[in-house]
């Protein structure tokens, strides 16, 4: 399992685009928004938590179809399925690798990008904490979406349609926490609720992902 994680990270680094692409997209989105809504600091400060969360979510979405697609195309997935590793474990490891290459860098980049969008300083800790707690759920749920569409030629678009409704609760609590933080309120309640969702998805979604993979390999 650790070998698989190391291999996935190695591939993400060597193949290029693994780390960089999501981050670059996140940055571009945060640069584009002020062009779209105007540079007024008050407006930006108000929508910054939402923009950062939606941006993180979309950046996460970008690399989802690569989680299993490449392995399925070159036959590695068949070999992994026949290996002693349980498919549930492989799915968890893949999700972890996806989080390390997208969710984690996005979380780290959120604070400086928040400055760019005039995010109130008191909201930044809440935003970063929210992303740190929420992005693992995005990766795990995304892995499920990738497992569902692994056999399809044009899975990328379908993944978005399948996965985005599932992201709804996480997005909602995450953005709510950042918004409450911006207003100087206590945001622990939405954070706890989101952490609950993350814990639940990490525990259960790999089983659904593995089931979907098995169905697709048939």
């Amino acid at each position: 399992m650790i070998a698989l994680l190391r291999r996935d990270l190695l591939l993400a680094v060597r193949a290029g685009g693994g780390f960089g692409l999501g981050l670059a997209f996140f940055l571009i989105l945060c640069v584009l928004v002020p062009f779209g809504v105007g540079p007024a600091p008050a407006t930006l400060a108000k929508i910054a938590p939402g923009i950062l969360w939606v941006g993180a979510l979309l950046a996460c979405l970008l690399s989802l179809d690569r989680i299993f697609q490449l392995d399925a195309e070159d036959g590695t997935l068949d070999l992994l399925a026949t290996s002693p590793l349980p498919l549930e474990g492989s799915a968890s490891v893949k999700a972890l690798a996806h989080w390390l290459t997208t969710g984690l860098p996005l979380t780290l980049a959120a604070a400086p990008l928040g400055l760019l969008l005039n995010l109130p300083a008191q909201a930044t800790p809440w935003l970063v904490a929210g992303l740190a707690l929420g992005t693992p759920a995005l990766s795990v749920i995304g892995t499920f979406g990738a497992a569902l569409t692994v056999g399809l030629k044009r899975g990328g678009l379908l993944i978005s349609l399948l996965v985005l409704p599932l992201y709804m609760p996480t997005l909602l609590f995450g953005a709510e926490a950042a918004r409450r933080g911006a207003e100087g309120l206590d945001a622990t309640t939405p954070l706890f609720l989101m952490a609950g969702i993350t814990a639940g998805t990490i525990a259960l979604m790999p089983f659904a992902s593995a089931a979907a993979l098995r169905m697709n390999l048939r």
Binding site: R7, L10, L11, E73, G75, T76, D78, L79, T82
Partner: peptide, 17 residues
């Protein structure tokens, strides 16, 4: 199936490794 080593048409190799 745990006794079977399967080698498919596809090589299952990663170009970057």
């Amino acid at each position: 199936p745990d006794e079977v080593a399967y080698a498919a048409h596809a090589d299952g190799l990663k170009a970057q490794m």
